[in-house]
């Protein structure tokens, strides 16, 4: 069996040498990794270790990286604008439930569908939006509720449904479990597994370690902007460097 920590052959997303500084602070420092199609790659790390900054730099929302290469499906994409990346199939979500508050749940998703080649007549778009909401398990009775009136978990589902509606091949989830209850985290875990069954590769930032190690095929740990471990989750969480980064002491 080949070592799991090696970058998979035929990677769908390969990132190399990504660096982003804010003034003197190197938030992301020369980060490289690759993902196989259908893989779930977890990203862990203490607060301020550069996880979200890495997502922001890869997707160019809301800023660009200073240096680095992003290869998506064999094509360099680091210079493409954000909406082109989304159209190619690289979608992301945010840690906060980022939705259009005054639009209904279904209209939120329709806005996403209208940007894709799949979009067509309004009736067809409504159908596709309802499909995306069904996939994430959003209750059908609340489709026409304004997003602002929905509880956090449902707003997160609307956001994920919007990302899925773009028909992505790689989905970047930024701390989807933050501010959720244990029951909701269970539903989220099932959803992440279901998305993988549908063939999506998922890059998952998460603080809830138990969720992260439970669904990830491989785990990458960042500390002070650098990759300090990458490999099978069970091994990575025992890595002395990882333990030190999290607890501040050597075991």
């Amino acid at each position: 069996m080949p070592p799991i920590s090696s970058p998979p052959l035929g990677a769908i997303l390969a990132v190399s040498g990504v660096t982003k500084s804010f003034g003197a602070l190197r938030a992301v420092d020369n980060v490289s990794f690759a993902m196989a199609p259908g893989e779930i790659l977890g990203i862990a790390g203490p607060n301020g270790s550069g996880k979200s900054t890495l997502f922001n730099a890869i997707t160019r929302i809301p800023f660009d990286m200073d240096a680095g290469i992003v290869v998506f499906e064999g094509r360099q994409v680091q210079n493409l604008p954000a909406h082109r990346l989304a159209a190619l199939g690289l979608a992301r979500t945010f840690q906060r439930e980022t939705v259009f508050p005054s639009l209904s749940a279904v209209d939120n998703v329709i806005v996403a569908i209208e940007q894709t080649k799949r979009g067509g007549s309004l009736r067809r778009n409504v159908l596709l939006a309802e499909q995306a909401l069904d996939i994430v398990g959003f209750p059908a009775t609340l489709h026409n509720w304004r997003a602002a009136a929905l509880p956090v978990f449902l707003r997160k589902l609307v956001m994920i449904a919007g990302a899925i509606a773009l028909d992505p091949k790689v989905l970047l989830l930024d701390e989807p479990a933050s501010s959720l209850t244990p029951d909701e985290i269970d539903r989220l875990r099932a959803l992440i597994r279901q998305l993988r069954e549908m063939g999506l590769a998922i890059l998952l930032i998460e603080h809830v370690l138990e969720l992260l190690t439970g669904v990830s095929d491989r785990l990458m740990v960042l500390d002070q902007g650098r990759v300090i471990a990458l490999g099978e989750p069970a091994q990575v969480v025992r890595d002395p460097q990882v333990v030190e980064a999290y607890l501040g002491v050597a075991p």
């Binding site: 159209a87 945010f94 005054s102 939120n108 990302a163």
Partner: peptide
């Protein structure tokens, strides 16, 4: 309403 949500949903914001 939300620039980041728009980018997330694939809108050409510029």
């Amino acid at each position: 309403q939300n620039r980041e949500a728009a980018e997330l949903m694939g809108l050409d914001v510029p």
